[in-house]
Design a protein around this nucleic acid. Structure first.
Lengths: 300, 300
DNA sequence: ATGCCTTACGTTATACGTAATTATT
DNA sequence: AATAATTACGTATAACGTAAGGCAT
C-alpha cells in the first residue's frame, strides 16, 4: 500500500532534483530512497520516473502524482493541526471579554472551579468578533456589555460596573459628588492599556478629549503619580485596588458609564462548563435582587 | 509519522465498532491492530479513544480524526485512479466517432500506424459530448459530420459518405436511379445498431417511418434476408461488403444524405499522434482534389 | 463462560546501511 | 576523478503472531 512517507519522499525528490540530495534531506541512504521510490512506482503500477542510467526524472505521470501528493500531505498536516487544537480546547477554558473587569471576575472563578484546566483569555472590543469566536467554539465564554439572545446560547448578566472620573485633588471639579461626560469633554486623559469597549464609550462621549494610552500598567501608575492628568477608574477597580490618595474619584452619571456584563456560553458546552454556569447563574440572581432592591429604594 | 495504513485501520475500526472484528477484516491479529492504533494516538499526541478495560471507543477528537481520515483516503484513491488512467491514455488511442464508417477507417489506420497501442473506440451521436471528450483529453480523436473550428484543435475532413436506400428488388421504386427521403417517408425500415448521427438524420427527414433496430448485425442480416423490409446502406458499406442480391441500392439525393467527416485532434496531442495526423492530412488533400475534379466535371 | 482489550515475548519480515557495479559529466 | 543510480548482501529495527492476564457482559 502507498504510504504518506513515500509521498513525502516523492515531494522532496521533486524539490531536490536528485535522489542523493533528497536522501540526505530525508536522513536516508541513497539506495534506501531509491528502492522506496521504486516500490511506490511498482505499487501504483505507473511510470513515475524516467530511469536513466545516471539520472532519475519525473515523467508527466510523475508530475501529476506530485500534485496529488502535495494535496494529500497538506490535508494530513491540516488533520494533525485540527486534532491538536481540538485536544487543547478540551484542556483549557478560553475566556474572551469586552473589558478587563469581567475578565478578572471570570479568571478568578475559573481557577477555583477548573484548577486542572489552563486558562486562555483575551480582551477584544469588537462584539462581532467575540460572538464569532463563541460560535466557532474557539471561545468557551464571551462577555459583552449587552445581552445577545440566541437559541444556542446561554446568556447571563453577572456583573455591573460604574465608571468614575479620577481627578487630581486640585482639580476645580474635585468636590462634586457626580459628574457627566460633557463636563470634562476637552480635557486630557491618561488611559490604561486593554480597556476594551470602554475605549468606544469614551471616544463617543468625550469627542474633544486627548487620550494618552500607556503600554503597561506600571508606567501608567508612575506617570499618573507624577502628573495631574485625569484618568478613569470604576467601582470594581476601586474595590480591588483601593483609593489613590492623590486622586478624587467621582461617578459619571451618564447611562453609558454604567454597564451590566453578560456572559454568553454555547449550550453545546453546558456539560463542560456546568460549574461555571451554576456560579454565574447565582451571581445573576444576586444581581436581580440588588436591582429590585435599588428600585424599591428609589420608590421610598 | 502517521501513515495511510493507520488511517485505513481507524476507518475500519469505526465501521466495525470492535478491535477484534476490525482486525479480522484487516487480516491482522487483534493485538497487532490494537498496538497500531495506540501508536497512531501516540504520534498524534491526541486522545483518539476512550480506553475502557473491556472496550475501545472513539472520543469526539477521534470522530473528528475520522472525517479527515476519510477525506485523505478518498483523495489517495482518487490519485491512484487518476494516475492509472493517465498511464493508460499513454498506451492507447481513444477514437470517438459520430458514425460507424469513419470508425472503420480510423481503426484500420491506427492499427497500421500504432501497432503497439491498444485501441479504445466508441460511437456517440451527441456532438457536444464528443467535443467534451476531446477537450477533457479523454478522447484522442473525435469525428463529426461538420467542422468545429477552435484554436486548440486540428480539424481535417478525411472521408465522405453517401447514404443509400436498400430496396427489395420487388419494390415499385426499385428501378429509379435516384430517390429522395420524401419518396419513402412512411415506410418501415430495418436498422442496424450503432448508426450514430444517422439516426438523427433519418428521424428528421423520415418523420412518418417506423424503424426496427436490431440488437446485433447478425440478426439484422438474417431478418433482412427473410423479409422485404427497407433498409439503408452507403457507398462505404457497399464498397466494403459488396452488393446484396436481394436488394437494390439507390442513392438518396437530399443534401443531408451526403456527409463529409471531419477528424478533430487536440494540438496538445500533435506529437503523440503525428503519424495519424500526417495520414489524415494526405486524405484531406485527396478529398479536396476529388471535389474540385467533380466540380470541373459538372462544368463541362 | 465467552468475548474483549492489553501487555509480554519470541519470531519474522521489511527496510535499512555498507559495499560493489556501472554509467555519466 | 567525481557524482549518480542501481544491485547485492548482511543486519537491525519494527511489526507481527502467539500466549498470557485482567475485566466485563
Amino acid at each position: 500500500m502507498m504510504e504518506l512517507r513515500q509521498l513525502k519522499e516523492l515531494l522532496t525528490l521533486a524539490q531536490s532534483k536528485t535522489v542523493s540530495q533528497a536522501a540526505r534531506q530525508l536522513f536516508l541512504s541513497q539506495p534506501a530512497l531509491s528502492r522506496s521510490l521504486q516500490r511506490l512506482e511498482q505499487e501504483l503500477e505507473v511510470d513515475l520516473f524516467y530511469h536513466g542510467k545516471n539520472k532519475l526524472e519525473l515523467t508527466d505521470t510523475g508530475e501529476l502524482a506530485l500534485t496529488y501528493a502535495q494535496q494529500i500531505l497538506n490535508l494530513s498536516e491540516l488533520m494533525v493541526d485540527a486534532l491538536r487544537q481540538h485536544q487543547a480546547a478540551k484542556f483549557s477554558v478560553n475566556l474572551q471579554t469586552c473589558a478587563p473587569a469581567p475578565l478578572w471576575e471570570l479568571t478568578a472563578l475559573c481557577s477555583l472551579l477548573f484548577p486542572q484546566l489552563t486558562q486562555v483569555s483575551i480582551i477584544e472590543s469588537d462584539p462581532k468578533r467575540l460572538m464569532e469566536a463563541l460560535h466557532s467554539k474557539l471561545a468557551d465564554c464571551v462577555v459583552l456589555p449587552a445581552p445577545q439572545q440566541h437559541p444556542d446560547i446561554i446568556c447571563l448578566p453577572f456583573l455591573t460596573e460604574q465608571l468614575y472620573f479620577a481627578l487630581h485633588y486640585t482639580h476645580p471639579l474635585a468636590h462634586e459628588s457626580k459628574l457627566s461626560f460633557a463636563q470634562l469633554d476637552g480635557a486630557a486623559f491618561l488611559l490604561r492599556p486593554h480597556i476594551g469597549f470602554w475605549q468606544q464609550v469614551i471616544d463617543q462621549h468625550l469627542p474633544h478629549c486627548r487620550f494618552m494610552r500607556q503600554q503597561d500598567d506600571n508606567s501608567f501608575d508612575t506617570i499618573l503619580t507624577d502628573s495631574r492628568l485625569l484618568s478613569f477608574t470604576s467601582d470594581i477597580v476601586l474595590q480591588r485596588d483601593g483609593q489613590r490618595t492623590d486622586r478624587v474619584c467621582i461617578p459619571i452619571k451618564d447611562r453609558a458609564a454604567h454597564v451590566t456584563y453578560y456572559a454568553h456560553i454555547l449550550r453545546a458546552k453546558e456539560k463542560k462548563l456546568a460549574p461555571l454556569i451554576a456560579s454565574l447563574t447565582a451571581k445573576a440572581e444576586r444581581l436581580k435582587l440588588a436591582q429590585t432592591a435599588q428600585r424599591l429604594q428609589l420608590l421610598t
